[in-house]
Structure formats: structure tokens, C-alpha cells
Design a protein around this nucleic acid. Structure first.
Lengths: 148, 148
DNA sequence: TCGCATTGCATAGCATGCTATATATTATTA
DNA sequence: TAATAATATATAGCATGCTATGCAATGCGA
């Protein structure tokens, strides 16, 4: 009995994810950002001044992961954090001018990476592919639920 | 202009990869192995006694990544390394009895994870999905080549 | 055979992600 | 209102992946 990587969804997904991330990393490096910051930036470009908790609710990562990512973003001059007016535990997160300025370039580059990856797919195929991925995500999330 | 995560291949692939990895991690934990060790184990179950260079040629990771993974595998009692008979720089890699014994269980569990993830897909859909992923990987690898 | 290039592997340093746990503040309740 | 529970964020520790670089051993050309 042989286990063939090329017919293992898990293997292929892992490999694809690394290639996407590396492709994005190379293209956004000139902008001064890295792939892990992208989801948070998307949310903050859309709505600035969120708390970590509010931002977390928009992302599919764990709280500790976000906290660390925000620390690096602050270190890199992408965000600043201000004390929350009503809750001393919380802080509001604000994009710096520097990162507000690269929004359009970053969008463009991210879309280019997606476009390149799917360059030999028809529109129909792309739609099916994205749908398959969303279905798989839903299934895996439900799996992992655990009644509790 | 809105960037929608649900229509971004890169975003979906990243999320899927994390869900697959977490699913696998939970299921193989009782066997004493972790997801990152799986590709190396598959290769070594198939052919024991490879050098790091030979093993590397079978995997889609960087040399440094493999070196670190092998160090953890040795620490965890999954492999031993012996001096190469003809080249003092190289070492041959050998599975321990402990890990030879879990081969069938590990195969089974990995296939279950794939099965579960695709449980609501037809055979036809699965074939298409795997094909899409292989095509995407090929495209991204070619992209990243750089003439040099 | 000496000297330099190449090779095989290891290490350093970093990003991204996770679980578990700590800390400080706020909210609730006896 | 004092004690307790809940909440918001941070930290510790680890795995996995990458690039860059170090080091020892091997191989090859002058």
C-alpha cells in the first residue's frame, strides 16, 4: 500500500499554501509588510481604530497569534495603539500614515498573486475551485467543533 | 473597492492548510508524531537508510527545514543517524522500531483526515479538486523559478 | 600534492501559527 | 462593598517554514 502525496489533499494544500505565501512575501516586501500582517491590514484599512478583540472577531486566527502579529506591526511602524477611552484593559489600533499610503499597492499585488496562481484556469474553473475550498473549510471547521 | 477574503485563493488556501494541519495534529498526537514529520516518515517508511541529501530530494522543503525536523525526530526517538560508510560529511537516517510499528496506523489516520475533509465531495469532484491543486502548484513553482 | 571550489549538514535568526497560562481590569454577586 | 468571576491582552514555549551563513570533509585542477 503506497501513500501518494499527489493524491493527498492535505499534502497538496500544505504545499500550495507555502507557495502562495512565498509568492506574496516576495511581492509585498518592497511595501514593508509581510504576509501574516495582510489579514489584519485588510480589516484595518476597512475600519480603523478597532480594539484587538474587535479585530480578532474578523480574522480566522487565535488571539495569541494576533497579539504577536500586532506587536510586530507596531515594531515595524505599521500601527500605533492608544488607550481605550472606556476600558483600561483594551487598546484601540490605528494604522500609520505610512501603511495607509500603501493600501492600493497592496491590494493590487495580492490580486496579482491570486491571478498568477490561477492564470491557466478558466473563469468557470476558478469559481469551482474557490467553492471547493470554501466547502472544505466549512467541513473542517465543523469537524473540529467538538460538542463541548 | 473591497478585497474579499472569500474570493481570495491565497487566503482560502492558507486557512485550509491550517485546518488540515490541526486536524492531522490531533489525530496523530497519540502516535507520538507531528505533522511536519509526516513527509519525511513517508519517505523513510518506503526506503530506510537514506542520507539527508537523498531524503531532501524526495521532499518539497528546504534543506535547513529538513535538518531541523530531523533533529526533532531524533530527539523524539523516531530516527537514529549513523555515519556514512564512504563520506564523513554525511549520515544515514534510520527509523526506530517504535516508528516502524506505527506506520499502518499513521497511514490510516492521514487518509481519514483527507476523507473527512472531502466527505461531502463526489468522487468526480475530488478528482477535479486534486487536479486543480496540482495545476496551481505547478504554476506557482514555475513562477518562482526566476531564469537565473 | 597543495589549494581552492564544492558538497553535506548544521546553525542563526526570523515569521507565523498554536495551546496554555499570566496579568490587569472590569463586572457581578453574595 | 468585598470577594469572585469574567474579560482583554500579553507572554511562554513550541512546531514548521524560510533565507543566509558557517564549517568540516571531499574532490579536482594546476
Amino acid at each position: 500500500m503506497e501513500f501518494d502525496r499527489m493524491t493527498s489533499a492535505g499534502y497538496l494544500v500544505n504545499h500550495m499554501a507555502r507557495l502562495f505565501a512565498e509568492g506574496l512575501r516576495k511581492r509585498i516586501a518592497p511595501l514593508g509588510i509581510v504576509p501574516g500582517q495582510f489579514p489584519a491590514l485588510l480589516a484595518l484599512w476597512n475600519k480603523d481604530g478597532l480594539t484587538q478583540k474587535e479585530l480578532l472577531a474578523l480574522l480566522d486566527i487565535e488571539q495569541a497569534t494576533l497579539a504577536n502579529t500586532l506587536t510586530r506591526m507596531e515594531r515595524d511602524g505599521l500601527i500605533t495603539r492608544k488607550e481605550h477611552p472606556a476600558d483600561a484593559r483594551a487598546r484601540t489600533i490605528h494604522l500609520t500614515e505610512k501603511v495607509r499610503a500603501i493600501r492600493d499597492s497592496a491590494y493590487k499585488v495580492a490580486m496579482e498573486v491570486n491571478e498568477d496562481a490561477l492564470s491557466d484556469f478558466s473563469d468557470k474553473e476558478r469559481a469551482v475551485f474557490l467553492d471547493f475550498m470554501r466547502r472544505t473549510i466549512t467541513t473542517l471547521q465543523d469537524d473540529g467543533q467538538g460538542s463541548k
